[in-house]
Amino acid sequence: MSTVLMRALFASLLAPSGPALPPVVSRSPLMLFHVDSGGCEACGSEVEALINGGFGLAEAGVGFAGNPRTADMLLVTGACSRMMAPVVRAAWDAMPCPKGLLAVGSCAIDGGPFSANYAMLGGLGGCSSVDCAIPGCPPSPHHILEGIVALIATTPFSPDHQDGSASAVTG
């Protein structure tokens, strides 16, 4: 069971008040929304290759959404520029709970060659909690897929993420 599903289960069981979350087990496949937060576009093109290059994404139970409102996980590439931080935040806020954050590429994890400066935050690592990080500059579609599948297969549940809001990006 994926982290997302586990989180949904815990969140629906442990939520102190409010309406119960919809039964997320019916939500299939795992939907990702991609945001390029400001990089060299290499990771984005590898994600594009993963989607269109015949990697059996649908068979792995993974799909890509055109809107964050219908996504389970936010897939972020790029080192997160200060201009993009509010955009990433808005996409995150628009996603329904439970939700997760996936950082693809060295830039998204710790900035890679684009450390923090006047225009960059230097990756998501310093300003948010990432559920899954796939290193590489850029990681190949195989590595990205393996990372997503590992995320689905394993359940490293963290109590910090119960309400699905711990991963918000702060500018």
Partner: peptide, 10 residues
């Protein structure tokens, strides 16, 4: 844009 869900730059 800048976030459309597609993989082109922002």
């Amino acid at each position: 844009g800048p976030a459309t869900g597609n993989t082109e730059g922002p």
